[in-house]
């Protein structure tokens, strides 16, 4: 997993509430048995004018010029700004995989759906919650200023705007640690292997049918 400390990145505004995981990566691309390669199909139905299917050459497909990620000024974006309940719907981890594969390092929104909120940081994608009023203002600033960048500092838990305004955000201490160090959860949990075995030994007396 890619480590996350500081990112100073171009911001793309996706002005839409309840962005669901079907929209982030449509189901036909979930037939892949790999973790990578989903970037060209991120937001497929918004991004292209034709119907997408696995194995296409994305460079030959007609782009939707109205879609934000197709506009020249947002090329190379690393930070996605969106509205409330981002990532709702299916548990598909292909959604954060697609965002990361495209090049996004962080998503900033007023709120995120629970499962997506769990999945994203396991793939090095930082999710930042800011107040709705602040998000409203960021949308205005991004649209008004071409080349608008935000500087995210995870250790300091701050987002700094081009004008020097510093916005603080909350992050789960465990997730923060894993993101900064690039750690995966399994290795950490296996350090508690003895505790898991002890739990099983005790619990199998109470609910033996679970362990038979």
């Amino acid at each position: 997993m890619q480590k996350f400390t500081q990112v100073n990145g171009l911001v793309a505004p996706l002005d839409r509430a309840n962005v669901d995981t079907d929209l982030i990566i449509p189901k036909q691309f979930l037939k892949s048995i790999k973790r990578t390669g989903f970037g060209p199909n991120l937001f497929d139905e918004l991004r292209y004018l034709d119907e997408g299917y696995p194995g296409q050459d994305a460079s030959k497909r007609p782009l939707n010029p109205d879609f934000v990620l197709n506009q020249p000024r947002y090329q190379g974006s690393e930070i996605l700004l969106s509205r409330k309940n981002f990532g709702c719907g299916s548990s598909r981890e292909h959604a954060p995989w697609a965002l990361v594969d495209y090049g996004f390092r962080a998503v900033i929104a007023p709120s995120f759906a629970d499962i997506f909120f769990n999945n994203a940081p396991k793939n090095g994608l930082l999710l930042i919650k800011l107040d709705e009023a602040v998000i409203d203002r960021l949308f205005q600033e991004v649209e008004a200023n071409e080349g608008y960048r935000l500087a995210i500092d995870l250790p300091a838990q701050t987002v700094t705007t081009p004008s020097g305004e510093v916005l603080s955000f909350e992050v789960d201490p465990f997730r923060k640690h894993c993101l900064i160090e690039g750690l995966d959860d399994i290795g950490i949990t296996l350090q508690d292997a003895e505790a898991i075995q002890a739990y099983e030994a005790k619990r199998s007396q109470v609910t033996p049918w679970i362990f038979s």
Binding site: R35, S91, D184, I186, L190
Partner: peptide, 30 residues
Amino acid sequence: DSHTATHGAFAALAHGVGTSEVEHVLATQC
């Protein structure tokens, strides 16, 4: 799968997880 919530009808604590957590549960049962 997010519709794992279904199984809560049995007074079971059930929820959907992503693939990293599928692997995590396979490897650690936790």
